[in-house]
Write a protein that binds this DNA or RNA. Sequence first.
DNA 1: CATGGGAAGTGATCTAATCACTTGATCACC
DNA 2: GGTGATCAAGTGATTAGATCACTTCCCATG
Lengths: 233, 233
Amino acid sequence: MTTETGHLARPTLSGSLAEAVIRMIGEEGLVAGERIGPQRDLAARFGVAVPTMREALRRLEGLGILSFRHGSGIYVGENYNRSVLPNAVLPPADRERLVELVQARVLIEPAIAHQAATVREPAAVARLADLLQDAHRCLTTGEDRLWRVNVDLHRAIADAAGNRIVAEVLDVILLLHAEDQRRILTLHGDPRADYEEHAELVRLITAGEADEVARRMHEHLTDVAGAIGPAKD
Amino acid sequence: MTTETGHLARPTLSGSLAEAVIRMIGEEGLVAGERIGPQRDLAARFGVAVPTMREALRRLEGLGILSFRHGSGIYVGENYNRSVLPNAVLPPADRERLVELVQARVLIEPAIAHQAATVREPAAVARLADLLQDAHRCLTTGEDRLWRVNVDLHRAIADAAGNRIVAEVLDVILLLHAEDQRRILTLHGDPRADYEEHAELVRLITAGEADEVARRMHEHLTDVAGAIGPAKD
DNA sequence: CATGGGAAGTGATCTAATCACTTGATCACC
DNA sequence: GGTGATCAAGTGATTAGATCACTTCCCATG
């Protein structure tokens, strides 16, 4: 029970190498998308053989902190300096797992919306308006992008709450079994009603109506959860 | 679409190997702590050279899905079939980051407590009583374990909510910069008051007082956040 | 100016050998 | 007979160098 080291110890060479690479990225001020040196140079720099260096780099690739491109180079990934990460190699989800995923959203997102209406991070609030408009466009033209836009809208709400950890948590939840979530939610959802509810959520956040937006967000998500939850397949 | 592939694609050999290993673990029904075969056998089985196989395994090690023990074997780790993972190689946290961490708890935990008082997963509720008693013992004897016990109590509350995703989220938040969190919270906290508040939280959960426990949890955490938040160092 | 080819840079994989650590059994000693 | 040291086998860790595959970009050609 209370043992649990959380796999944080790194007594191994490969482990300390990974740590050293992280430090190096920080010192050189590299950001996501930029290239780190060639593996051969890195190996020489840290005084190890290429395969050993590659093991350390692969480890970071698993976390999404690095990204390999054959023939091109090794690049800093999106998850560098990100705290909460999704398990990228998760076994396929059963129905129960998906229900839990949606219920987790029911639990967390109202609180996020409440905070968003309180903090109202300007950049994110501006993006809310854009996304809403974009969603409306997709709705009239029937574009496939609608799902993505709606997800981005929920993420923008989290951004408006002004807390990176919270934003990352929601990000991960929305990313987990993303395809399954999309299938299940588009199946049970009404695009028109979704849009109206999103518009109302954005209005309430902009107006700073924290309590009301939390209530509405709860309803917005409970509708979906209720539709898929009880169904036993 | 907004770019962002979420590093889910695995066109590389090392990537599909990692996926295959995950499948293999599932098929053989292995659980955390059990040994997977020797790397040489695995390499032969999947028809690749040892270094290539090791790269795939290292990638999973980075995620905490595997654990290497020199001379002993390679074992299934705690994070197998876990959805939400902590970044184990995070650069050191600045003060702002730690404040966000605590604020994230303020945001999420009241909702968790509310759900816990509603669902009241029996096993977890039973553990709550045990942990409370344990905390009391630590308090009287002045043991160092108190911090760990208190953290476990918060985690048990999340378990009582009966949602694995939510429990994992809280787990990760409590694990992030754990040492910094411990330092900052023990500095500003009053062990005696903490115990009383925890006892009240447990009582309310057991009694199913969802709204009240959410309010109390919010206060319980706001006290701490308020104490460390404004201070500009 | 556009295009195709080729050279250089870089990652991907392999082979095969050696070293280091763990584990368990064996065996000597008490 | 029990206890402890020792050793052998199993397994991970690291190395070296070579070769193949992919990307990028420059330059010559049309």
